[in-house]
Structures are given as structure tokens and as C-alpha cells.
Amino acid sequence: MRVFIIHNFYQHAGGEDVVFRQEVAELSKHHDVHIFTRENKRGLKGMMQFLTYPFNFFVSRKIAAAAREFKPDVVHIHNLHYAIGPWFIRPLAKMGIPIVQTLHNFRLLCPSASLFFRGSIFTASLDEDFPWTAVRLGALDGSILKTFLTGFTYWVHRKLGTWDRISRFIVLSTFAKSMFQKSSFPAPSGKFAVRPNALDAYPRQEKRTDRFLYIGRLSEEKGIAPLLAAFADLPFTIEVYGTGPLQDFVEAMSKQNGRIHYHGFQPPEVLSLAISKASALIVPSICYEGMPMTVIEAFAQGTPVLASNIGILAEMVVPLHTGMHFDPFDQSHIRATVTAWADLGSEAKKGIAENCIAAYKRHYTLEKNMDRLVAIYEEAIHTKKRQAQ
């Protein structure tokens, strides 16, 4: 199969970039793969990229030319924001090429992409034809202009029927599918295929410690601030890995409290080892996550997960089977959950660890994930052929 994969890198690397690289590497083992990428820039060049976001004819021509030369059986889109934009979908569809798009976030529904704003879940855009509420509030980076242009980009392509040209939308969970289905986004249920993220990992079988672990971006929506505030009153140790806008806060908390250990940014092998030794991974997000790779890695290592009881996390983590849930907006509930986990017996923890490994093998192995991806490609190709008859 000839697969043309398109991806836009953010200025700061994220989970979407990991998934893109992983899929390219795996598909290339058995298929002919061609990629087209762009990267968001800073300064004047970045401003020009953003201003051409809705109608980037220059990039569109380049992608169309590459498609004519490569002659793909299917096109797979990951991220379009913002140096690529959606315009290229139209000429590729005119060529009769089936197009699949992975929806790593909720940007097609709201400029915020995360459905998070000012410390809480933000869903006003789901019922609006144009996201005026998000624009008025500056839901994207606190900027009315950036929010408007992003909202306009996806709104105008709704009106132009650009998204109708996508053969399949890949979502990471049934929760994500339900969010799109109950929104104003004009796509039938049959166009959505649920396919979780995956990881090629194995249990390290390291000796467990009694320490808790946080790995992720140090930002408001990830819930790191209330988590550490809760831990300040607990007799347990937490190891924190990551960088972000709240790094100064985390460093200050680490200096004030000897049980909060901050390690900054670390390579994947260090993080994997930390996960394998932890008593539990804590994911305190107060936004709707896509599908955290750290949770999948934890399951692969047999490390239980204590997670927020919202969004995909409520779906991935099963209480007292693969971990526990807590209310991320309630520090007392965070403390109670951490304490309850620490007090759980060793046999119960061992059983939960075994359940985590079983969940990984059942849902998140790379082999099963890639088989599902190829099946989605084949469905899209078959549907396109049937429509052409």
C-alpha cells in the first residue's frame, strides 16, 4: 500500500509528534510511505504562516504536486495547525484519493483544542455554529485574534464542505467520538473510527518503591498545581518530570517540601524506568486529554494509574482494576485517593498491576494498533471506490 502522511509539528514537541513518527516507522516496514511535514515558526515567519492558515494555497500546491508524483492509495492527516491548514484537502479529494484524518484533539470543534479555559472545562463551542464565545474570551492563548482566525479557519471549511471530503476520522476513544457526535460538527457516525494510541513496550520488572510519579507538561490544564498543593499535606514522596509555564512554581514547591522531587526534562528511557519503579502514576488533568502515552506506558510496565475522573481518563482507568479515580478540582479528594492507594494491601496492588499489563496487551500494543490502522485505510479505499462507481 502507498501511504502519504501529512503532519504539522508544533514549536514544542508533543504527543502527536510521537504518534506521527511511530506510525511512519511502523508503516514503512511493510508499505511504501511518503511524508510531507511543516513546522510552526516564531516571529514574522510564524505570523505569515498563521495569517495564511485558512487558505494556504502555496503549501496546498506543494502537497498536490507531491501526491501526483507519489500516487498514494490513501492520505493520512495528523496535525494541520497552523503552517499547513486544511485547504489542500480539496485538491487531493478532486484527485479521487481517499483521505483519513486522526483527530488528536478537539480543534475541529473549538479553537481551544483542549476544551479547557480559565481553570475549567469549556464546551460552549460545541453547540455554536461559529465559536463566538471562545473568540470573545480569547480561549486560544488569551488572544482574540488567534482565537478568531483559528475558529474562522475551521468554520469556513465547514461551509465549503472541506470536511465532507474526509473518508474516515480516527478518534482515540469512544469518549472523543461522543463529543463530536453531540456537537454541531457535520459528520455522520459512520465516518468515525475509534483507534487508541499504542506503544511498543515491555515490563521492566523493576523493584517497586512507595513513591508516586507525575510525568507531563507543567501547565494549568494538566492539574499539576492542585496535585502538588495536595501533596504538601501528605506524608508521601512524589517524583515530578517535565517542563512548562508552571516550572517556577514546581521548583519552588520542591525547595519548600523535601517529599516533592523535581527532575525537569528527561529522555524516554529515564521516564520508562521511573514509571516501572513507581507505586503509581498520577494523571491529575483538569482538561479533556486525547490519550496520554504515559498511561499506556504505565499499563505496559504494570504500574497502576491514579487519574482524574473526567474524559478519556475515566474511560482508560478502571477503579480498583487498573488504578483509582479522583476529582481533580478537589484537593481533599486527591489526598484521600492517594492515601487510600498507599494503604491498599500488597496482594491487591499486585493484582491491579497484573490487570494493567493485561489491559496493555488487550488494547494498546503496537502490533494490534497498526493492524487496525491498515484496516481503516482499506475501509476508506473501498468506500472511495464504491462512491466512484
Rank of each mutant, 00 (worst) to 15 (best):
Q266N: 11
W132I: 14
T162E: 05
R168M: 08
C356S: 10
V295I: 14
A198N: 00
P98H: 08
G351K: 12
A274K: 02
M1Q: 10
E26H: 05
K255H: 14
E23S: 05
F236K: 03
E367H: 11
F88R: 04
E69T: 12
G323M: 08
K277S: 11
K177M: 13
V240L: 05
C110V: 03
P304G: 07
L27C: 02
T153S: 09
G311A: 03
T383S: 13
N355M: 06
R259C: 09
G345T: 11
G290H: 00
I170F: 08
R42M: 11
S189Y: 04
E269Y: 12
K384S: 12
P131I: 06
I77S: 07
I286A: 10
A375T: 11
W155M: 00
A307Q: 07
K177A: 12
A13I: 14
V18M: 12
A300Q: 05
S167G: 14
G96P: 00
K182M: 12
K191T: 05
A230Y: 07
S276V: 00
K71Y: 01
A93R: 01
V33K: 09
T174N: 15
N105I: 01
P111W: 08
Q181K: 14
F4T: 10
M47S: 13
S189D: 15
V135A: 05
K368T: 08
V250A: 01
P111L: 10
V18F: 12
L103M: 10
N369H: 13
P226F: 07
Y377N: 00
A336C: 01
I170W: 08
K146D: 00
D32W: 00
L145D: 03
A232V: 03
R195A: 08
V194C: 01
K29R: 15
L199Q: 10
H261Y: 02
A278R: 09
D327M: 03
V317Q: 08
I260D: 11
Y288G: 06
K385M: 13
F106C: 09
